[in-house]
């Protein structure tokens, strides 16, 4: 392809500079995680063995590789704590994604049907919370969900309940937190899929005798599927490894892998095991991430 804008050298640099940055600071770190996950824990700094040293040369490198062990992974599969944490993270993420879709769909659908003059404002209002701190938005829920919090005060004063509901430090609080925090991520792709839709299709279906509800299920919903897929992946993948929400809103009985990894690293100082936890999580998520990359680059290509 002719690219007249940049001469050949500059041409290459446009690609090389960001490429090199991401290779060094995004990809290579994962290789290091994999490598340390195969090491042994040691009481030293850094707290793992063996440590690579350039001075050892090739033979030292080979000696190092020989000492690689899968002990940490065996440990992960044998200890029920980790297995449960993986399973419950996936379950919580899956349920939260479904709930988010259920709440986001009517909002996105209604936004797409809003008068054209109102749409930019509505879009702005959906994006705005995304710009305010994740931590702050999760923190705001603590004051609402506490036993003596605002929600219970409201419900008690209206006489709907006679005893405070225990929501904070339960899985319910985690669901609320995830749905709340990730709602904009779901609304945006749904909205952009629904907004592009040709409304004459549903009108035609209804003229031909389709009820509004079956017109929705047969036409609107299938046409919005790319948005549904993109939105669900945008919520599901980060939710699996979520740390802040289970830590602040969840209870001690809630096991989520992001929190387990954090504790393993910060409290237990076990770097090899936390690397193994991260590597295994990445292996679980690699397929959804590839789906996401595919869906996203397809959407970007359609955009032009």
């Amino acid at each position: 392809m002719m690219n007249r804008l940049f001469p050949a050298i500059v041409n290459r640099l446009v690609i090389i500079i960001p490429y090199a940055w991401l290779l060094v600071f995004f990809l290579i770190p994962f290789v290091i995680v994999l490598r340390i996950s195969l090491s042994e824990t040691a009481v030293a700094m850094p707290p793992y063995l063996p440590v690579f040293a350039w001075a050892d040369g090739i033979s030292g490198f080979i000696d190092n590789v020989r000492t690689f062990s899968f002990d940490n992974y065996v440990w992960l599969t044998e200890d029920a704590l980790y297995t449960n944490a993986y399973i419950s993270s996936l379950t919580i993420a899956l349920i939260s994604t479904a709930l988010t879709l259920l709440i986001a769909y009517p909002v996105a659908y209604s936004m797409a049907k809003a008068p054209t003059t109102l749409r930019p404002t509505l879009l702005m209002l959906v994006i705005l919370p995304f710009w305010t701190s994740f931590l702050i938005r999760v923190y705001a829920w603590i004051a609402i969900l506490k036993p003596e919090g605002l929600l219970n005060q409201l419900l008690l004063s209206t006489g709907l309940i006679s005893e405070p509901l225990i929501i904070l430090n339960t899985n319910t609080a985690i669901y609320i937190g995830i749905v709340y925090s990730y709602l904009p991520f779901m609304v945006l792709p749904l909205y952009s899929a629904l907004e592009k839709m040709d409304h004459s299709l549903t009108e035609a279906a209804q003229d031909l005798g389709c009820t509004p509800i079956s017109a929705f299920w047969r036409i609107t919903f299938p046409l919005s599927l790319p948005g549904v897929v993109a939105g669900c992946l945008l919520v599901f993948i980060p939710a699996v490894g979520e740390f802040v929400i289970p830590d602040l809103l969840g209870g001690s009985e809630t096991l989520m892998i992001g929190k387990t990894l954090w504790n393993e690293f910060n409290a237990n100082r076990d770097w090899p095991v936390s690397s193994a936890v991260a590597a295994l999580l990445l292996m679980i998520l690699v397929v959804p991430i590839m789906f996401f990359q595919n869906a996203q680059s397809r959407l970007d290509r359609e955009g032009r």
């Binding site: 290091i32 490894g241 979520e242 690293f265 999580l281 996203q296």
Partner: peptide, 11 residues
């Protein structure tokens, strides 16, 4: 964009 932050941070 979707990578759990604990993984990115640790690596």
């Amino acid at each position: 964009l979707v990578m759990p932050e604990v993984i990115t941070g640790l690596s």
